[in-house]
Amino acid sequence: AQTLKIATVAPEGSLWMTEMRASAERAEQATEGRVKIKFYPGGVMGNDATVLRKIKLGQLHGGALTGSELGGLSKNAQLYGLPFLFDDPAEIKPIRQQFDQYIRHDLNKAGYAVLSMTGVGFAYLMSSDDVGSREALEGRKIWVPQNDVIAERTFRAGGVSPIPLALPDVFTGLQTGLIDTVANTTSGAIALQWHSKMRRLLDLPLSYILGYVVIDQRAWNKISEADQQATLQAFAQGSDRIESENRRSDASALDALKQLGVQVVQPSESERDRWRTVGREVVDALIAESRLDGEVIGKLRAELQRRRQG
């Protein structure tokens, strides 16, 4: 029997962890106990860099990581997370059917098998103050995760001051006014208890958040092909359930926010265009620095264009 030890920062009890545990159980049953999966949730194994080092050393066999955390391994891991790429949440599904393969291929080249790719949802800008126009945004102070260069460049180019803070400081930062704007999914904002300060939500999808479960190929290849397929299937099922549940909880979180007095702001067409241009320029600069894969992004943009016209 092969035991796969997987680390994640997702806390125990979260939807993600609950479904992952259920998927692991299905995989274990389907392989008659030949594949066992053990989780280390809550970030107890360290941050992304440390988890990747421990995978190389063989203490861990895999990690549940976000696209930006895998950015160092694969230029395409952040593909769907690029800023202001999508206009409408409905665009993601057909695009993923076409483009997931590029990401898998990239990660395989880096030595990882992809156990699952799960959509967490779209992040939106939420603020305690007005975010509808360029002038209003100039006064805002938006939180960006430390080291998230893409977010930092995007907001700077868009005229908002990015304030890098560690996650634990965000809660108190919102209370004291050190920051007044965050980007997250609606259910994420509620889970982190950021919602009590929020008054506005900008109705413009900022980026699509994707969670990966990657497994070291050295461990993965010890599993027979049939068992690999059974395991992949168990996790694909879990992935589907998380995605549909996330869509539901994002919708109900939005309702909850509205009931708390959060106003959904529709940006003007020119404001939408401005953000899209900002996003495109930042991505182009990163392609020029060869931090992102220009070829795949070019294909993705062309496909989106085709669908929007057609």
């Binding site: 941050n47 860099a49 440390t50 421990k54 050393l57 063989g58 203490q59 560690a166 996650l167 400081d169």
Partner: peptide, 19 residues
């Protein structure tokens, strides 16, 4: 039977812990 480099990996987390 773990690679003892893990001890060094844990020690370097001193450079990662927020706060």
């Amino acid at each position: 039977d773990y690679d003892l480099t893990l001890v060094a990996v844990e020690f370097q987390r001193l450079g990662q812990l927020p706060g």
